[in-house]
């Protein structure tokens, strides 16, 4: 792990990268220990000294434990589901450890939040870290501070992770977008209907004499003690073309915002669509994959 630049996971925390300092409480206890030490030394009170030194031993051990709780920790990878700008992305960090040790009470802090977790030494652990997003495009999570004050909060040990992984931030969909440009213009949109014969099995219904024999669902009929027929639905499919140049909005960001809303609406309605962003054209197609491709293109556009 390089300290000064982002690096790709997997990253392992080496001993040089662990910093450690007493917490506020740690300093308070140090003060208390000093008072105990002075008192016991002055009165030459050996049991008092022993108590003081036990506290000192506790402090020393908790320093070591905090340090060892971090050292050798491995960050395997970071992923994040894309979100729309303005939403909080959840950076999913997967961690494990090299030595099969359990590591309790760890925390990861980003600019925007903190989340705690334990490693049990056997399984991988995933942690979600909130990241606030402001604008579309690729968001770099920046340095992540992984910290712990295990076991009794006297010392805080921390190390920096700087994953090179970035988070895709989709544009924010427009609140009240204009209606989808269905059939508008000469090639702005057209509708085709496509009859697929028996591809799309829809449901079972009671058998009617006019149904062909091969439509009878024998197995299901047996279960239901009645003749059932498979019903297929012919799918009527629309297609729209969504063009950046023709989007009714002022300013690039607003247009992209409207396009985002449209793309999502088209996906919800199950329409085929094409996205034209100047030189880049995606589609026509439908489905999740297509939606993701379009949203990504919109997020990256002009950046």
């Amino acid at each position: 792990m390089k300290r000064r630049a982002p690096a790709n996971p997997p990253l392992t925390i080496q001993y040089r990268q662990v910093f450690i300092l007493p917490t506020r409480f740690g300093w308070t206890l140090a003060l208390l220990m000093f008072a105990m030490l002075m008192g016991s030394l002055n009165f030459n009170n050996n049991l008092g000294l022993l108590t003081t030194f036990i506290v000192a031993g506790l402090a020393l051990n908790s320093m070591l434990m905090a340090y060892h709780n971090l050292r050798g920790l491995r960050l395997l990878h970071c992923t994040a589901k894309p979100v729309h700008a303005g939403d909080t992305a959840r950076l999913v960090v997967t961690l494990s450890d090299q030595d099969g040790r359990s590591r309790p009470a760890l925390e990861i802090r980003s600019h925007d939040g903190l989340s705690g977790f334990d490693l049990d030494g056997i399984n991988l652990e995933t942690v979600e870290i909130p990241l606030r997003t402001h604008q579309r495009g690729w968001l770099s999570p920046g340095r992540l501070r992984i910290q712990t004050s295990h076991p009794i909060g006297l010392f805080e040990a921390w190390a920096w992770f700087w994953p090179a992984q970035r988070v895709l931030v989709w544009p924010r969909p427009a609140e009240n977008p204009p209606p989808l440009p269905r059939g508008a213009g000469d090639d702005g949109g057209r509708q085709i209907s496509r009859q697929t014969d028996s591809d799309n099995f829809h449901s079972l219904r009671n058998w009617r004499p006019e149904d062909p024999v091969h439509r009878i669902a024998w197995k299901a009929s047996q279960r239901h003690q009645a003749l059932l027929a498979r019903e297929f639905r012919a799918e009527v499919s629309e297609q729209v073309v969504l063009d950046l140049a023709r989007t009714p909005a002022s300013g690039l960001e607003q247009r992209i915002s409207v396009l985002t809303a449209w793309v999502m609406q088209a996906h919800r309605e199950g329409i085929d669509w094409t996205l034209n962003l100047g030189k880049q054209s995606i589609g026509p197609a439908h489905g999740e994959r297509h939606l993701n491709a379009c949203l990504r293109a919109l997020a990256e556009f002009g950046q």
Binding site: R74, L76, H77, T79, A80, K81, P82, S96, G100, G121, I122, N123, L124, L168, R289, N292
Partner: peptide, 21 residues
């Protein structure tokens, strides 16, 4: 795999085998 993770399942499986004690 999650499409955004950029991994394929064979790699993930290898990784899991390589990291599980």
């Amino acid at each position: 795999t999650r499409p955004e993770s950029g991994l394929d399942s064979a790699a993930v499986v290898e990784e899991i085998l390589g990291t599980t004690r």
